[in-house]
C-alpha cells in the first residue's frame, strides 16, 4: 500500500487547475506527499500543470472526439484505487461537480462540496463550507478516505509560474466507461470568457435593473470605473441577460476585488457570501433598508436610473481633470 499522502487535482479549466494546485500544496504541507495534476488535454496543458507547481502529472492525452470530460470518472476511480492518494481536489465547475459526485460514489465516500477553506485539527482534515444558502458556515470532517473535494474559482491563490519545472509527466490510460452519451450539439453561449476573481473592480447589477436594454447604462458605469461586469443570479439564470459565469454568490463566482459596486442588488446571503471579502463595498438602492445597504461602506439611497448617469458624469469629469 502506498502512503496515502499525495494530493491530486483535476480541472478541465487550466486557470482553475492552477488555483487547485495551490490548494493541494496546503494539504501536502501536512500530509508530506506530492501534488499531482490529472490532465485531460494536450501535452502543453500537462507541461503547464508542472509550471503551475504540480510535482507530477498523470496525463491522459486529449479527450477523444465525441467524449465528455465526465467520461473520466472510471479512469479516475481506477487510478485512485490503484495509487491511493490522500485525496483529489476537483474544480467546482458543472462538469467538475459531476465528476466529483460520481467519483465519490464509486469510492464509497461523500464529496466535500464547494470547500472555502481547509483546516487541520491535529492530524484530521477539516473543510469549511457554506450551508443554508450562505446563512451558516459548517465545518465538516471526512470520516473515510480518500478525500474528494470540490472548490470553485477564487478560493485559493495560484502561485507564480515556475520557469524550469522539474516534475515528470506519467501517461495514464483510459478506462472505458460502462455507458456513453452521444454528443448531438454544442452551442457556445458566452461571447467572451471572464475571470471575475481576477478583476480589481466589479460592478454588479441586480433585479433593480428593469429591462435588459438598461444594462447598457450599467456597462457604461463599468467602463468609467474600468470595472468588470458581474450580476446577481436572477439576471443570469432565469432572465438570461448575462452569461452564468458572471453571477456572484454561493452557486456562482467568489470574488475579493478592491471595489464591489452593487446596483439594484438587495443583498441576500446567497449573493453576499460571494463578495463579502471585497475591500470596499458600495451599494446603490432606492431602499435604504435593503440588506446590502446596511452591509456596505458607502450606501447611496436613490433611483439607479438617476444616480448611475450622475455617477458616470462625475467620474468622467474627474478623469478629464
Amino acid at each position: 500500500m502506498a502512503d496515502d499522502k499525495d494530493v491530486w487535482v483535476f480541472s478541465e479549466k487550466p486557470a482553475l487547475q492552477a488555483e487547485l494546485i495551490a490548494g493541494a500544496q496546503q494539504l501536502t504541507s501536512h500530509t508530506g506527499g506530492q501534488v499531482m495534476a490529472v490532465v485531460l488535454g494536450a501535452r502543453s496543458q500537462a507541461e503547464q500543470a508542472l509550471e503551475q507547481g504540480a510535482q507530477r502529472v498523470l496525463w491522459l492525452g486529449e479527450l477523444p472526439s465525441g467524449r465528455l470530460v465526465e467520461d473520466i470518472v472510471p479512469t479516475l476511480a481506477a487510478s485512485v484505487q490503484d495509487k491511493r492518494p490522500f485525496g483529489v481536489i476537483i474544480g467546482a465547475t458543472i462538469r467538475g461537480r459531476a465528476v466529483a459526485g460520481r467519483l465519490a460514489a464509486r469510492l464509497g465516500v461523500a464529496a466535500l462540496a464547494d470547500v472555502l477553506e481547509f483546516q487541520w485539527d491535529d492530524s484530521a482534515l477539516l473543510a469549511r463550507h457554506m450551508v443554508f444558502g450562505g446563512g451558516a458556515v459548517r465545518i465538516d470532517r471526512p470520516l473515510a478516505g480518500p478525500v474528494i473535494a470540490t472548490t470553485g474559482q477564487g478560493i485559493f491563490e495560484a502561485g507564480a509560474l515556475q520557469a524550469r519545472p522539474k516534475g515528470e509527466i506519467e501517461p495514464l490510460s483510459w478506462v472505458e466507461p460502462p455507458w456513453q452519451a452521444a454528443v448531438i450539439e454544442r452551442r457556445s453561449r458566452a461571447v467572451s470568457s471572464v475571470n471575475l476573481s481576477a478583476a480589481k473592480r466589479v460592478v454588479c447589477p441586480g433585479r433593480g435593473v428593469a429591462r435588459q436594454e438598461d444594462l447598457g447604462l450599467i456597462e457604461e458605469l463599468a467602463q468609467a470605473l474600468s470595472a468588470e461586469m458581474a450580476c446577481t443570479r436572477p439576471l443570469a439564470e432565469g432572465l438570461g441577460w448575462l452569461p452564468r459565469e458572471r453571477y456572484i454568490g454561493i452557486s456562482g463566482a467568489m470574488i475579493k476585488p478592491d471595489l464591489y459596486l452593487g446596483v439594484g442588488v438587495s443583498g441576500q446571503a446567497q449573493h453576499t457570501i460571494g463578495m463579502s471579502e471585497s475591500r470596499v463595498v458600495v451599494a446603490i438602492n432606492k431602499d435604504r433598508a435593503a440588506p446590502l445597504m446596511t452591509q456596505s461602506d458607502y450606501a447611496v439611497e436613490g433611483d439607479l436610473y438617476q444616480v448611475v448617469p450622475a455617477l458616470i458624469r462625475a467620474l468622467k469629469a474627474r478623469k478629464a481633470k
Binding site: 485539527d121 446563512g135 451558516a136 458556515v137 465538516d140 471526512p142 470520516l143 446571503a269 471579502e277
Partner: peptide, 15 residues
C-alpha cells in the same frame, strides 16, 4: 455508515 461528520455549524462572521 456516514462518511462525513459535521463538527460545527455557525453564523458567518459579519465583516
Amino acid at each position: 455508515e456516514p462518511r462525513v461528520e459535521a463538527v460545527s455549524l455557525r453564523a458567518p462572521r459579519p465583516v
